[in-house]
Computed example of a mutant assay.
Amino acid sequence: MAGLASPDIDEATEIEVGPPVGWQTVVWNDPVNLMSYVVHVFRTYFGFDAATAHRLMLSVHHDGHAVVARGPRELMEAHAQAMHDFGLWATVRKDPT
Protein backbone atom coordinates (compact mmCIF):
# COMPACT_ATOMS: atom_id res chain seq x y z
CA MET A 1 0.00 0.00 0.00
CA ALA A 2 1.69 3.08 -1.22
CA GLY A 3 1.57 6.20 0.88
CA LEU A 4 0.59 4.58 4.21
CA ALA A 5 3.03 4.74 7.06
CA SER A 6 3.60 1.49 8.84
CA PRO A 7 3.79 1.44 12.61
CA ASP A 8 7.21 1.14 14.19
CA ILE A 9 7.05 -2.38 15.57
CA ASP A 10 10.38 -2.01 17.33
CA GLU A 11 8.99 0.59 19.72
CA ALA A 12 8.98 -0.70 23.29
CA THR A 13 5.93 -0.17 25.43
CA GLU A 14 6.08 -0.47 29.18
CA ILE A 15 2.93 -1.42 31.02
CA GLU A 16 2.87 -1.30 34.77
CA VAL A 17 0.42 -3.65 36.38
CA GLY A 18 -0.55 -3.12 39.99
CA PRO A 19 -1.95 -5.72 42.29
CA PRO A 20 -5.48 -6.78 41.40
CA VAL A 21 -8.18 -4.81 43.15
CA GLY A 22 -10.16 -7.04 45.43
CA TRP A 23 -13.74 -6.53 46.50
CA GLN A 24 -15.83 -7.53 49.50
CA THR A 25 -19.43 -8.49 50.07
CA VAL A 26 -20.57 -6.97 53.35
CA VAL A 27 -23.75 -8.03 55.15
CA TRP A 28 -25.26 -5.40 57.46
CA ASN A 29 -27.35 -5.72 60.58
CA ASP A 30 -31.08 -5.13 60.21
CA PRO A 31 -34.00 -5.07 62.62
CA VAL A 32 -35.98 -7.71 60.73
CA ASN A 33 -34.12 -11.00 60.33
CA LEU A 34 -33.61 -13.49 63.13
CA MET A 35 -30.06 -14.51 63.97
CA SER A 36 -30.90 -18.14 63.23
CA TYR A 37 -32.10 -17.16 59.76
CA VAL A 38 -28.85 -15.28 59.03
CA VAL A 39 -26.88 -18.38 60.07
CA HIS A 40 -29.11 -20.46 57.80
CA VAL A 41 -28.47 -18.14 54.83
CA PHE A 42 -24.72 -18.12 55.39
CA ARG A 43 -24.63 -21.92 55.61
CA THR A 44 -26.87 -22.63 52.64
CA TYR A 45 -25.64 -19.94 50.24
CA PHE A 46 -21.92 -19.71 51.07
CA GLY A 47 -21.52 -23.26 52.40
CA PHE A 48 -19.95 -22.11 55.67
CA ASP A 49 -19.74 -24.62 58.48
CA ALA A 50 -21.91 -23.95 61.53
CA ALA A 51 -19.14 -22.30 63.57
CA THR A 52 -18.11 -19.91 60.78
CA ALA A 53 -21.71 -18.99 59.96
CA HIS A 54 -22.42 -18.36 63.65
CA ARG A 55 -19.26 -16.24 64.08
CA LEU A 56 -20.14 -14.10 61.04
CA MET A 57 -23.73 -13.70 62.24
CA LEU A 58 -22.47 -12.49 65.61
CA SER A 59 -20.24 -9.95 63.85
CA VAL A 60 -23.27 -8.70 61.95
CA HIS A 61 -25.28 -8.54 65.17
CA HIS A 62 -22.67 -6.98 67.46
CA ASP A 63 -20.47 -4.97 65.06
CA GLY A 64 -23.24 -4.01 62.66
CA HIS A 65 -21.70 -5.79 59.66
CA ALA A 66 -19.47 -8.64 58.52
CA VAL A 67 -17.39 -9.31 55.43
CA VAL A 68 -18.74 -12.61 54.15
CA ALA A 69 -16.80 -12.90 50.87
CA ARG A 70 -13.79 -11.48 49.03
CA GLY A 71 -13.01 -11.69 45.33
CA PRO A 72 -13.66 -10.15 41.92
CA ARG A 73 -16.24 -7.39 41.73
CA GLU A 74 -18.69 -9.28 39.52
CA LEU A 75 -18.80 -12.22 41.93
CA MET A 76 -19.19 -9.94 44.95
CA GLU A 77 -22.08 -8.17 43.21
CA ALA A 78 -23.72 -11.55 42.59
CA HIS A 79 -23.30 -12.43 46.28
CA ALA A 80 -24.81 -9.10 47.35
CA GLN A 81 -27.78 -9.66 45.05
CA ALA A 82 -28.23 -13.15 46.48
CA MET A 83 -28.24 -11.70 50.00
CA HIS A 84 -30.92 -9.22 48.89
CA ASP A 85 -32.93 -12.13 47.48
CA PHE A 86 -32.75 -13.73 50.94
CA GLY A 87 -33.95 -10.46 52.50
CA LEU A 88 -30.59 -9.43 53.99
CA TRP A 89 -28.94 -6.04 53.59
CA ALA A 90 -25.63 -6.31 51.71
CA THR A 91 -23.23 -4.07 49.83
CA VAL A 92 -20.06 -4.39 47.79
CA ARG A 93 -16.91 -2.40 48.56
CA LYS A 94 -13.25 -2.36 47.65
CA ASP A 95 -11.14 -4.58 49.84
CA PRO A 96 -8.74 -2.30 51.72
CA THR A 97 -6.17 -5.09 52.12
Score class of each variant (00 low, 15 high):
62 H>Y: 12
25 T>F: 02
61 H>A: 09
94 K>G: 08
73 R>H: 15
86 F>P: 06
33 N>M: 08
5 A>Q: 05
55 R>P: 01
2 A>V: 03
5 A>R: 01
76 M>A: 14
20 P>K: 08
40 H>G: 06
2 A>K: 08
37 Y>P: 00
73 R>C: 11
34 L>V: 06
41 V>E: 09
50 A>C: 03
2 A>H: 07
93 R>T: 15
58 L>V: 04
7 P>I: 01
24 Q>W: 00
64 G>Q: 07
24 Q>P: 00
57 M>F: 04
72 P>E: 12
82 A>S: 15
7 P>V: 04
65 H>G: 07
76 M>Y: 07
78 A>L: 09
1 M>A: 14
82 A>N: 12
30 D>K: 06
55 R>F: 12
82 A>W: 07
60 V>W: 05
34 L>G: 06
40 H>E: 14
43 R>S: 09
27 V>R: 03
47 G>P: 08
92 V>P: 02
56 L>T: 05
69 A>R: 05
63 D>C: 06
16 E>P: 01
35 M>I: 04
72 P>T: 02
78 A>G: 05
4 L>P: 07
59 S>F: 03
30 D>C: 13
21 V>W: 04
62 H>E: 14
79 H>K: 07
1 M>R: 05
78 A>M: 12
63 D>T: 05
65 H>P: 06
92 V>W: 11
28 W>E: 10
61 H>R: 07
40 H>S: 13
84 H>L: 08
2 A>L: 11
30 D>N: 10
5 A>D: 04
71 G>R: 03
96 P>T: 07
75 L>Y: 10
66 A>M: 08
39 V>L: 13
28 W>A: 11
17 V>K: 10
87 G>D: 15
29 N>W: 11
23 W>C: 02
45 Y>K: 14
72 P>G: 04
60 V>G: 03
50 A>H: 15
68 V>A: 14
63 D>Q: 14
92 V>M: 05
7 P>L: 07
65 H>L: 13
3 G>W: 13
18 G>L: 12
25 T>K: 03
88 L>K: 03
6 S>M: 06
95 D>F: 00
35 M>Q: 09
77 E>K: 10
21 V>E: 14
46 F>A: 09
22 G>I: 00
74 E>D: 14
72 P>Y: 06
32 V>W: 10
69 A>S: 13
37 Y>L: 01
17 V>G: 08
66 A>L: 06
75 L>D: 12
73 R>M: 13
13 T>N: 02
40 H>Q: 10
23 W>D: 02
22 G>E: 06
79 H>I: 06
5 A>W: 00
17 V>S: 11
46 F>S: 12
57 M>I: 01
54 H>P: 00
73 R>W: 13
56 L>S: 05
58 L>D: 05
49 D>I: 06
